[in-house]
């Protein structure tokens, strides 16, 4: 990350501090879990991607994810880690083209969890689908089961991982919905980067809280889940798709 980027981030923080008091109205800060309280099913974290706001040439979310988790290319695009990717789809009959990010959809009924032979793949109480890499044996069954091709396999020996995001050779990995940030009351890196880029095509929040912004949005506008026919009930929804 370049120095100038750091500076602008601090600038943003300053601005946030200035009008934070105004924006912190009741119900905006959706969920305040104390540090030693376990996650609960009262919350279902979800994301809303507004494809009408997503720019085809922008990959700020992908960049942010790679930076956050230290995902670097090993010169083999087929097996390089890719936790979030930009897709561009075109309707052949109308020629309408759309671009949007796809990552782990954090399904309510995740196929990766169903197939995992060791129980490493699991859904946390608050709906975030994770991999307990302490017991992952690297069979890659989850990668095959996932209809969203969200899971990756680590092929390389890694060093100097991010302290908050352990990764290691021989295990499956995927988007964690930035669980380390969410647990600290934050928002995922991709959502943050999207907002910072000025497009604001991504929204993160608690789907179970009727007063949350994301709940209001999914109530009021037409949103879809990718491959909803599979009834995996993803926590990531798309608007305008």
């Amino acid at each position: 990350m370049s120095e100038s980027c750091d500076v602008s981030r601090r600038g943003l923080l300053g601005a946030v501090a200035a009008f934070g008091a105004v924006s912190l109205a009741p119900g905006v800060m959706l969920y305040a879990r104390s540090a030693d309280e376990p996650v609960s099913a009262k919350v279902r974290w979800g994301m809303l991607v507004d494809t009408t706001q997503c720019d085809k040439d922008c990959d700020a979310c992908v960049e942010a994810c790679n930076t956050e988790f230290g995902l670097v290319s090993h010169g083999r695009p087929d097996s390089d880690p890719q936790w979030i990717r930009k897709l561009t789809v075109t309707d052949p009959s109308t020629g309408r083209s759309q671009s949007f990010p796809v990552m782990c959809q954090h399904c309510a009924h995740p196929p990766c969890v169903d197939v995992c032979p060791t129980g490493a793949s699991f859904k946390r109480a608050d709906g975030i689908v994770l991999i307990n890499r302490h017991i992952c044996v690297g069979c890659r069954y989850c990668e095959m089961a996932c209809p969203y091709m969200a899971r990756n396999f680590v092929h390389e020996n890694l060093t100097d991982q991010k302290p908050y995001a352990p990764r290691g050779k021989g295990t499956s990995e995927a988007c964690t919905m930035c669980v380390h940030r969410v647990d600290a009351g934050g928002t995922p890196a991709c959502v943050e980067a999207c907002s910072k880029s000025g497009r604001v095509a991504m929204l993160f929040g608690d789907l179970n809280d009727p007063n949350s912004e994301i709940s209001k949005r999914v109530r009021s506008v037409n949103t879809t889940q990718i491959r909803s026919d599979l009834r995996t009930d993803p926590g990531v929804r798309y608007q305008g798709l």
Binding site: L13, V16, F19, H180, A184, G185, E192
Partner: peptide
């Protein structure tokens, strides 16, 4: 400092 995102979160939300 990156993890101190609670206030940032609220600000982004209002922007959205």
């Amino acid at each position: 400092a990156d993890l101190e995102t609670a206030t940032r979160f609220a600000a982004l939300m209002s922007r959205f």
